[in-house]
């Protein structure tokens, strides 16, 4: 990240902050609906260690599930692209799995894994792997057949075709899926925390929600946004390093 990206990122944040404060002051919004940003930031500052550890816990859960989902999704996409029989048998199961609402899934996961990081990661995984699978498959299948022919004329086998052509060529689509999945992984981790977790942004959000602590609700929302941004930034950095060759994203 260069010195130029920082102001580019900070400017919209500053704008949102100004709009927030301005709206609260200008329209006299009741703090019950939207407390002043100052107050929310104050609440976070007052309990900084608590918010920091909640941020890290949820980030760890979401990242673990996201990473697993990405790995399984990419491996699945590759396998489906190479084994049409497997694809016919297993891909429909993947599709069916996505028809189970994540909330119902959460109730099962808490029975299986209890109150562990694995439980939240499992839900984040559940929301992540499918879009990555589908996009990896589509990316591999969209490879220019002339390029495949060229590499074959050089004597390339399927393994070389995969590593030297198909996978790199599918990377832009894989990253599109990863960008879409990053917020899903966060949502998964937060939903996972709604099933009896002791730590994390989702647990904080739930406590604030049911105790009607409006300031704490907004503080938890900001913390969740921070986790989402961190996850997104990880994906964006990886993308910039791996898909550097694609035109300006």
């Amino acid at each position: 990240m260069s010195w130029r990206t920082l102001p580019r990122l900070a400017a919209p944040l500053l704008l949102i902050a100004l709009l927030w404060e301005g709206a609260v002051l200008g329209f006299g919004i009741s703090p019950f609906y939207l407390p002043p940003l100052r107050q929310v930031l104050g609440a976070i500052a007052a309990l900084w260690p608590a918010y920091q550890s909640a941020f890290l816990v949820t980030l760890a859960e979401a990242t673990a599930g996201f990473a697993m989902g990405a790995l399984v999704g990419i491996a699945g996409g590759i396998a489906f692209a190479h084994l049409p029989r497997l694809r016919r048998m297993v891909l429909p199961l993947f599709v069916v799995s996505q028809t189970v609402p994540v909330i119902a899934f959460g109730a099962i996961v808490v029975l299986w894994f209890g109150n562990t990081l694995a439980a939240k990661a499992a839900i984040a995984f559940y929301l992540t792997f499918f879009p990555v699978t589908v996009n990896t498959l589509a990316g591999i299948e969209a490879v220019d057949p002339r390029q495949v022919a060229l590499l074959r004329s050089f004597g390339a086998g399927s393994r070389e075709l995969l590593w030297k052509l198909r996978l790199p060529a599918a990377l832009p689509r894989i990253f599109t899926a990863l960008r879409l999945s990053a917020p899903l992984a966060l949502a998964g981790a937060i939903v996972g925390e709604w099933f009896g977790a002791t730590q994390g942004v989702g647990a904080m959000l739930l406590a604030a929600l049911f105790n009607e602590q409006v300031v704490a609700i907004w503080a938890a929302i900001l913390a969740a946004a921070a986790v989402g941004s961190a996850l997104f930034a990880l994906v964006a950095l990886a993308e910039r390093a791996l898909v550097f060759w694609r035109e300006e994203l």
Binding site: I103, G106, A107, V110, G114, N115, W194, F195, G196, A197, T198, A203, L206, F210
Partner: peptide, 8 residues
Amino acid sequence: INPGGPNL
């Protein structure tokens, strides 16, 4: 100690 919640 595991807390409860609305979904449990």
